[in-house]
């Protein structure tokens, strides 16, 4: 399991109902069902990954985060997970609204565009960042909505989501030691992970 997925697992209480959007081959939901006794389900866009996951006996459906979330009941899940997918959906704000409608909590991770490396690449290279995280050319990237941690925090405030917890993840996937300062985390965190809940 990826290190960022392990961090996600650490945010989820045992016996919860979890929906993983962009569940890939089902690694996360498999782990949650087996080791945390969760009722974990997945949605994945890529049919070959869906088939792999279902063939492992996991409840995964082929679907699209932009269109299919509206079919889930309000507060049907304790946690809705969107890992490394927010930057690739058509309408991130609407997808986030659906996540917060369906789940009591939302867990969102995304590659942080505010990380110093893409910043430097743009500043000194004068070109769109190309590196391990942002690895496709601008004209064919699926990552059509990149954002920084601070951008995301702004959106959460605007939408009245409570940020229960945030983590910056370093390039090895572990927790980066910038727990106090969002400003520093936004520079040194390669990936960002947020635990959100609705403000009542």
């Amino acid at each position: 399991m990826r290190l960022d997925q392990e961090l996600i697992v650490s945010l989820i209480n045992p016996y919860s109902r979890v929906l993983d959007i962009g569940s890939g081959d089902g690694t996360l939901i498999d782990h949650l069902s087996r080791h945390r006794k969760c009722d974990a389900r997945g949605i994945e866009l890529d049919m070959s990954l869906v088939t792999q996951a279902v063939a492992k006996g996991l409840p995964v459906i082929q679907g699209n985060a932009d269109f299919d979330l509206k079919n889930y009941p309000t507060k049907g899940f304790d946690y809705v997970v969107l890992s490394r997918t927010l930057q690739a959906v058509n309408r991130p704000k609407e997808v986030l609204q659906q996540i917060m409608r369906i789940g009591r909590h939302g867990i969102v991770s995304f590659p942080n565009f505010g990380h110093w490396f893409p910043r430097m690449q743009l500043l000194f290279g004068g070109r769109m960042p190309m590196n391990k995280v942002w690895s496709t050319q601008w004209y064919e990237t699926p990552n059509i909505h990149p954002c920084t941690m601070m951008d995301f925090v702004d959106l959460c405030q605007q939408e009245h989501y409570e940020i229960k917890q945030w983590l910056a993840i370093n390039d090895k996937g572990g927790k980066a030691p910038w727990k106090r300062s969002l400003y520093l985390a936004n520079i040194f965190g390669e990936q960002a992970l947020f635990l959100l809940s609705n403000r009542n």
Binding site: P59, I61, Q62, Y72, P73
Partner: peptide, 12 residues
């Protein structure tokens, strides 16, 4: 999905 049933779906 609307009734939160446990469902897998594959188009082969």
């Amino acid at each position: 999905n609307r009734v939160a049933a446990n469902v897998s779906f594959v188009e082969i």
